[in-house]
Design a protein around this nucleic acid. Sequence first.
DNA 1: ACATTTTTGTTATATAGATAACAGACGTAA
DNA 2: TTACGTCTGTTATCTATATAACAAAAATGT
Lengths: 227, 227
Amino acid sequence: MPLIENNLKSNLMNKFFDCDLKQLQADYHSIKEINISKKAFLYHQGDRCSDVFWIKNGIVKLSHITEEGIEMTMTILGKGSVIGCFWNNSASPEVEETVQALGEVNFYRLAKSDFKALMSHQTELAWHIFEEVNARKQKVERKLRTFLTQPVEMRVIATLLELSEIFGIKCTHGYALEIHLTQQEVADLVGASRSVVSTVLNDFRSRGMLDYTREQICINDASFINL
Amino acid sequence: MPLIENNLKSNLMNKFFDCDLKQLQADYHSIKEINISKKAFLYHQGDRCSDVFWIKNGIVKLSHITEEGIEMTMTILGKGSVIGCFWNNSASPEVEETVQALGEVNFYRLAKSDFKALMSHQTELAWHIFEEVNARKQKVERKLRTFLTQPVEMRVIATLLELSEIFGIKCTHGYALEIHLTQQEVADLVGASRSVVSTVLNDFRSRGMLDYTREQICINDASFINL
DNA sequence: ACATTTTTGTTATATAGATAACAGACGTAA
DNA sequence: TTACGTCTGTTATCTATATAACAAAAATGT
């Protein structure tokens, strides 16, 4: 169900992505299509970046490293997401997060000015992107609430369920995540220590709520409904 | 300095707010100007709302009450902010937060469809609002990072400084907040217990970093720079 | 096939902060 | 002025989770 909704929402984007790149370049000079491989970076925290990135295919991880050296994963995004530097924060043009490809990633990169032009010409598309950014804002807000009021156990559940909605593939038990996450990565995502996450995951596994190997996490979503 | 920047940014909005309401109503039938008094609510968590609210004057508090009954203040917003329901989340049209006026508040209210129309006609304004929403997204992200990695002490500092940038009035010691906050409200804002917040505030006061009465909080911002 | 690195599972200890409880201060309505 | 409700300040106790440390397992490179 979440997958279907996802597809509907990206129809407009597909139309955009499917049209000829050359044609786009005529109007928006700076636009370029780029492919990068697994674990490569789109940009780093602190970069003085004034471009906008638009994920055409693949999955990326946005993380931030605090001054104390703690890595925090802000979110994981897929096809259709717009990231980079499109706000007018003259004070600091440095991006606040590092973006890394999980698997192969294919994206468009264009200057902020061209992005702005594109947004004003294509109002339907602009509205769509506006909604996407706003939905992301809402997700962070929900995350903040969950993290501030729920114990690690719940945060792990919430995080995995959210991921499974976006990157889950239906499998025999429920949803298998199409991305590989180590326990440390899960910990960074839920803002907890790896050891606690390990214990929590084991506990869930022994209760049959999920299963995992080093390769893959598989969630029995039915067993979480009573949350 | 933050105040000046704020003013620059809202020039466009001012132009919009200053123009004749009747004129706007001709194009956007649903638009209405509304005034509400102190402590009144714009809308409540769970309301099935499909309108967009645009703060013309005053300050509002967005909070969420968890199932366990814990109140969490997501943010405090002022003039120029756009809130309400403008995303396309067909799954749940219910808003996730309660919005309350701190002091007198004056705002425009319009149907989502009109808001969308307005956004497509006035591309400059649309871009401006897009940036505003995005800036708010960034703020929540920063908040999430701070709250997940910093102790209550730091969260209080960060929160008060952020508020003073937006709602601070220059006074003899530094910035006085033009909004009245009880310790409980500060606690809701920093996601901590009231008792700890109380101790922290007293500690800061005794160190001369801030001063407060039941009426007002006043921050000696200079003393926080070494953070 | 071996050495090295990365990931996992587990436990013992320490600690920030929640909770609860209460007294005093302040504000305000009668 | 009294009484009552709302805020504030403080402390004693409890708990979730961080930290640290280590061994086993798996992956990776040579």
